[in-house]
Design a protein around this nucleic acid. Structure first.
Lengths: 334, 334
DNA sequence: ATGAAAGCGCTAACAT
DNA sequence: ATGTTAGCGCTTTCAT
């Protein structure tokens, strides 16, 4: 079962291989008569061009590599959606690899993408192994680090200050008069850790004690986890006055656990989420949260990559702060 | 900025290119002395093999194509997770493409994957365009259709009867004495449609009227949508006795809308979800749902593909029904 | 255990 | 507008 090649099509159509190639890539350069013959032959044989050969010959892959930590988190689904939209429309293939929050797996992902000769890499976060940094730098292709701001970007950087956002959320609770404010998280990836750092700083400035509630082993954020973690806290007998969750899923879980236990939100406890997921506004009570701009992050990252690829000139490294916004709702009302 | 090639490494190491190639692919065939020299040269130059060249020369891609409708739905994230685990461990690359619930985009995805010469295709659903079917059949590679059972599988098929599941869920509500049972959905992709069909049949058999509540334009399932759709229903003045939601997200949204309106679950209205998402058990009240086996689906699909690839023999087409299970919880208690 | 020669299927560059 | 030639960077096959 030999696969059909360009030559087969050329033979059937009675033209040279390069003409077939042209019909497929720049049809307007070929005379209508030949074009029709070639198209017919392509269809008849069910010819599908071999991308590997094309990539090798042209040394263009039209592929962009994207590394995300996980596919479980809607945040990244939304981000990928936006990326995809822009890049596919521009004729690029998007190759998504997930690092599972591991810097080692991230390094492997980078190697795999470079092996495929992607034309640019868009990578979540700003913390990488030394080798990862080296590979990305030496590859001489556009690199975008996203979701955080780096003190020392590899190339481009589009994100927001996770720490500032953590501070803002915590201050909101402090200003409303809460003292015993807990911080709830399932894992401490770099972004959650930065938000925690913001919380810590805000609490310290207000002369209040930290109250971290962290899952024993790292787990991805989920409603069930929020419920579990809050239940454990209650079991220890110290129900806080307010909790700041690293993520709206956790917040929703905590809220449901409150309901089960007859703890009223916000009367008995205030709950603050993060990311403003779609359900935050319609939860009962509605959930205060911090809006993050993941669609914009994806869109902008893709556009910057396209721009860098278009201007063959070495793109100057650039940092863009997309910011965030706190949305107070019922769950933290006083 | 020429890229480093195998020849560069060979020159630096003072060996022939083929030796470098061997060191990279079957190190135990090369003498330790040369192996060390080559490894050093690879490291020094930061050499990363060109996958396109390797694929072209060996006519093996070690790539498996996976088509899913969307990345927004956790169902598919879980499925991909399982697929990934098995396939990556076996040395394959997984190329994920989403069809956005469009058969046309699915057709394009198939073409793109075949162009990349993937060694197998795992595709969601059993409804495809005629050309899609033809391409998949003619490609002579393992194909797995998932999540549904096909009356006429292309090759392998791993799934469950969405219609049966829809019937089971509806009967559960009927048996509990509810008469005015609504069916809530945001879109009618083939799986949702089959569940609706199951609902329709069960209602007809019980001599009860249909009460479909469908979003005006197709929207992906979300908590907010569940809330919206239920609110619209209430606005029309006809609050049903029970609702069967195509998806737990919708169910949760409906539940929250009930709370806002002072409608008690399950006292005033029963709510039934689908898929048993992680939050169903910890919702307050806990949500009755239908467990579907997406991890197993992914794992099994991957294993079947590996088996088919291992035995060069033409795999016989096979159909596996993974079933489902109804979990009654508080939201439909009487 | 190592190497030389040929070729995978396409496209760039240069004719005509 | 169409064709010819050469070669992309690897691996296969067949020596040695």
């Amino acid at each position: 079962m030999r696969r059909i090649t360009l030559d087969d099509v050329a033979n059937l159509a009675g033209v040279s291989p390069i003409t077939v190639s042209r019909v497929l890539r720049k049809p307007d350069v070929v005379s209508p008569a030949l074009r029709l013959r070639v198209d017919a032959a392509v269809k008849e044989l069910g010819y599908v061009p071999n991308l590997a050969a094309s990539r090798l010959a042209s040394s263009r892959t039209h592929a962009i590599g994207v590394i995300v930590p996980t596919l479980y988190n809607v945040i990244f689904a939304e981000y990928l959606f936006a990326l995809h939209d822009v890049l596919v429309a521009a004729g690029f293939q998007v190759i998504v690899v997930n690092s599972r929050y591991s810097e080692i797996e991230e390094e492997n992902a980078i190697k795999a993408l470079l092996g495929q000769r992607v034309e640019a890499i868009i990578i979540t976060g700003t913390h990488h192994t030394p080798l990862s940094r080296q590979l990305l730098t030496q590859a001489h292709l556009p690199v975008v680090e996203t979701f955080e701001l780096s003190p020392d970007p590899i190339d481009l950087n589009i994100g927001m200050s996770q720490e500032q956002a953590g501070q803002t959320a915590t201050r909101h609770l402090i200003e409303r008069g809460f003292r015993r404010i807990a911080f709830l998280t399932g894992n401490l990836d770099h972004r959650a850790q930065s938000r925690f750092e913001g919380y810590r700083v805000a609490m310290q400035q207000a002369d209040l004690p930290n109250l971290p509630i962290v899952a024993e082993r790292p787990r991805h954020s989920s409603v069930a986890l929020g419920s579990d973690l809050f239940a454990i806290t209650c079991a220890h007998g110290d129900v806080p006055e307010a909790i700041f969750c690293t993520d709206d899923n956790l917040a929703l879980g905590a809220m449901q656990e409150c309901r089960k236990r007859g703890i009223r939100v916000p009367d008995d406890i205030a709950i603050m989420g993060f990311h403003d997921l779609e359900f935050a506004a319609c939860a009962a009570p509605s959930l205060s949260s911090v809006v993050t701009r993941r669609f914009e992050t994806g869109k902008l990252a893709a556009e910057k990559v396209l721009a860098a690829l278009a201007s063959s000139a070495r793109s100057k490294s650039e940092q863009i702060d997309l910011g965030y916004a706190l949305i107070p709702r019922e769950s933290t009302a006083v």
